[in-house]
Simulated scan of single mutants.
Amino acid sequence: MTCPHCGASVYENDVKCPYCDSFLENRNADNTRRPVSGPGQFTMNGPDQVNVALVIVSLLIPIFGIIYGAISLGGGHQKSGKVYLILGLAGIFVFPCFMGIIPMTFAFLGFAQ
């Protein structure tokens, strides 16, 4: 195999070129090229599907939705990452308003003392 960056001859299974220190591309079983993750990079495994339990948690605990949404976006799950991030941001505004309405409703109906 030849390094696409410097043209040096490298082994087929090498991840980095020993000469120019750049990351190489590997081939999958179907002989398609894919980039190799570098240090500090990751990809999330599994399909990019929205989980209902995580949607509920993202609304009830907004910081979880924001953090998990950012992790999902960084890991390559664009669809679910956007959903969790948006719901986490919405949860910051919706949940406190909702929690303020419940006590006011009980006070208005005379249940609270």
Rank of each mutant, 00 (worst) to 15 (best):
37 S>T: 10
50 V>I: 15
112 A>D: 08
33 R>S: 14
42 F>I: 04
109 L>G: 06
92 I>M: 01
63 I>W: 04
18 P>N: 08
49 Q>E: 13
21 D>I: 06
84 Y>C: 05
54 L>D: 13
23 F>C: 04
58 S>F: 04
14 D>W: 10
72 S>K: 14
87 L>Y: 01
85 L>N: 00
39 P>M: 01
17 C>V: 12
95 F>R: 12
41 Q>P: 12
65 G>H: 07
86 I>F: 09
23 F>H: 03
76 G>Q: 06
89 L>M: 12
76 G>A: 01
83 V>G: 05
39 P>K: 06
67 I>R: 09
90 A>D: 04
96 P>F: 00
80 S>W: 08
20 C>A: 12
13 N>G: 09
107 A>E: 12
38 G>T: 05
109 L>D: 10
50 V>G: 06
17 C>I: 13
21 D>W: 09
3 C>E: 08
8 A>W: 06
47 P>L: 10
109 L>Q: 09
92 I>R: 05
59 L>T: 00
16 K>Y: 14
6 C>N: 09
19 Y>L: 06
94 V>E: 02
45 N>D: 11
53 A>V: 11
75 G>M: 08
113 Q>R: 14
33 R>Y: 10
57 V>P: 04
10 V>N: 01
23 F>Q: 01
99 M>I: 01
108 F>T: 13
66 I>T: 06
95 F>S: 04
96 P>N: 04
24 L>N: 03
74 G>Y: 03
48 D>N: 11
42 F>T: 09
48 D>I: 13
95 F>T: 07
58 S>C: 05
17 C>S: 07
18 P>C: 09
93 F>D: 00
45 N>E: 13
